[in-house]
Amino acid sequence: MFYVYMVECRDGTIYTGWTKDVEKRISRHNSGQGAKYTKSRLPVRLRHVEEFPTKEEAMSREYSIKKLTRKDKLHLFGQCH
Rank of each mutant, 00 (worst) to 15 (best):
Y3I: 01
V4M: 10
V4P: 08
V4H: 11
Y5K: 05
M6G: 01
M6W: 01
V7I: 14
E8H: 11
E8P: 07
C9H: 00
C9E: 07
C9G: 06
R10K: 15
R10L: 11
R10P: 00
T13G: 08
I14R: 07
Y15R: 05
Y15Q: 05
T16I: 15
T16Y: 01
T16Q: 03
G17S: 05
W18T: 09
W18V: 05
T19R: 00
T19P: 07
K20P: 03
K20Y: 06
D21Y: 01
D21A: 11
V22W: 00
K24D: 07
K24C: 02
R25P: 05
R25T: 08
R25D: 09
S27R: 15
R28M: 14
R28T: 11
N30M: 08
S31L: 15
G32S: 05
G32E: 08
Q33E: 12
Q33G: 09
Q33C: 01
G34E: 03
A35D: 10
A35S: 15
K36Q: 07
Y37A: 08
Y37F: 14
Y37P: 00
P43N: 12
L46D: 08
L46A: 04
H48V: 09
E50P: 01
E50V: 04
E51I: 04
F52E: 06
P53I: 07
P53A: 12
P53C: 08
T54L: 11
E57Y: 03
A58L: 01
A58R: 02
A58S: 11
S60D: 12
S60Q: 13
R61W: 04
E62N: 06
E62M: 09
Y63C: 07
S64I: 05
I65F: 12
K66Y: 02
K66V: 01
K66M: 11
K66A: 02
K67I: 04
L68R: 07
L68D: 11
T69I: 03
T69W: 05
T69E: 13
R70L: 14
R70I: 13
R70W: 07
R70Y: 12
D72P: 02
K73G: 11
L74H: 14
L76M: 14
F77K: 04
F77W: 14
G78R: 12
Q79F: 00
C80D: 12
H81G: 14
